[in-house]
């Protein structure tokens, strides 16, 4: 069944490609693209102006999502989460999700990094929102 405001296949391919490049630094595997398109159709997630602008402007989806966390970025977040579900079940992404054994110093460094990185992304997101009038 067609959803009235369903996104075109090409738009979804562009979307998943941008999201994947932003988070994983490369183009997504073909199966992931196909599944992403099907999942969006099945979940009837229509187009989202915020996601469209992030994709069109090659903006950082993670920073924008964090800065607008809540209702304003709910669909963008859902789309990122969809991509994460699809990749986390592939062993190629195992090292991304499952840390190899680390000593205490590396753990502390990792936690600190996570906190500082969040701060940086939050500030970047706020700047992107203002600069591109995202809301």
């Amino acid at each position: 069944m067609q959803v009235p405001n369903e996104q075109s296949g090409e738009a979804l391919v562009a979307e998943v490609t941008h999201l994947h490049r932003s988070f994983f630094g490369s183009d997504p595997p073909v199966e992931v693209v196909k599944r992403y398109v099907s999942a969006n159709g099945l979940m009837r997630v229509g187009p989202d102006p915020l996601t469209d602008r992030v994709v069109a402007g090659h903006l950082d989806p993670e920073a924008v999502e964090l800065a607008l966390r809540g209702a304003a970025s709910a669909i963008l977040r859902k789309k990122i989460q969809t991509l994460f579900y699809l990749v986390e079940v592939r062993s190629a992404y195992y090292p991304y999700f499952f840390t190899s054994a680390k000593g205490p110093l590396k753990v502390v460094a990792g936690m600190l990094h996570a906190g500082l990185y969040t701060l940086r992304q939050y500030l970047k997101g706020k700047w992107l929102v203002l600069r591109y009038h995202l809301v």
Partner: peptide, 9 residues
Amino acid sequence: LAIRSNVEV
């Protein structure tokens, strides 16, 4: 946290 930080933590 930011999504990547959540994954890391």
